[in-house]
């Protein structure tokens, strides 16, 4: 990790290397993020309405959808999807480059593979993750709105006004973004490490890809608990 950070300067001097990785890790993950966000938001709207209407509080469904997504589900599910889609791809790509001697060839050309291959992918993932999580939450809120307001008929004014009065920018939005930044660092660090460390065989690359998804998922869920405990302690 320290090595990657130390060797990141050339990547920032040639930012197009990072831009390219943002495209592969971020832009190419958009479809799965947006579609998943929409459905998660729709389910939240439906379940939220079902529960809240028993207490006559169905107008609070907007608050429930927004807080659930911004604080937890947006960063966590987006990170899990990111680990499965982009993290596994990063590991497989770097692992296969190693297995087919591309990294060795680069080294023999006096080009450091960590600076040229690993660092741009790491930063591409780190920059993409918070943006993907934000988009997941936005589309999720829209999904909740579709179900609760458009399909079920909850009052639109109540839906938005309750959400506006309950959601705090500092505690809810910013903390959610901070969480997704942490997840971005953890997932991409695991992905590039597993790829670079993979045994140069078909079995080795396959095992490394699996380890990326499993380790990242556990790390995301564990880290989420720790971050939540620090961020939302004593906040109503």
């Amino acid at each position: 990790m320290l090595l990657v950070l130390l060797k990141s300067i050339p990547s920032f001097l040639r930012f197009r290397l990072i831009t390219r990785e943002i495209y592969f890790a971020g832009v190419m993950s958009l479809i799965i993020i947006l579609v998943s966000g929409l459905f998660v938001g729709m389910v939240l709207g439906l379940q939220g309405y079902e529960t809240l209407q028993k207490y006559g509080s169905e107008s609070a469904v907007g608050t429930l959808v927004a807080l659930s997504l911004l604080r937890e589900l947006g960063p966590v599910i987006a990170a899990l999807l990111f680990a499965s889609r982009a993290g596994s791809a990063m590991t497989a790509e770097i692992g296969l480059m190693k297995a087919t001697e591309q990294l060795a060839a680069m080294g023999m050309m006096a080009v450091d593979p960590i600076a040229r291959i690993v660092a741009p992918r790491f930063w591409g993932g780190v920059f993409s993750m918070p943006l993907l999580a934000a988009m997941f939450s936005v589309v999720g809120i829209f999904g909740g709105y579709l179900v609760a307001v458009v399909f079920i008929g909850v009052d639109e004014g109540s839906f938005w006004s309750q959400m506006q009065s309950s959601v705090d920018f500092r505690y809810d939005v910013v903390n959610g973004v901070i969480k997704s930044c942490f997840f971005g660092v953890v997932v991409t660090a695991i992905a590039v490490f597993e790829g670079f460390d993979a045994p140069p065989t078909a079995e080795g690359v396959s095992g490394a890809t699996t380890r990326t998804v499993v380790t990242s998922s556990l790390a995301i869920l564990g880290l989420d608990f720790v971050l939540t405990a620090f961020m939302f302690r004593g906040v109503s």
Binding site: Q102, A105, M109, A110, V111
Partner: peptide
């Protein structure tokens, strides 16, 4: 690395960078 710039190595199966075109591989 300075010494390696004066060396070339052809690997068993070429080890071309699969995400770069033939032109970009040679220009690398």
């Amino acid at each position: 690395f300075k010494l390696r710039r004066k060396m070339g190595m052809l690997f068993q199966f070429g080890a071309l960078f699969t995400d770069l075109s033939v032109f970009d591989n040679v220009a690398f």
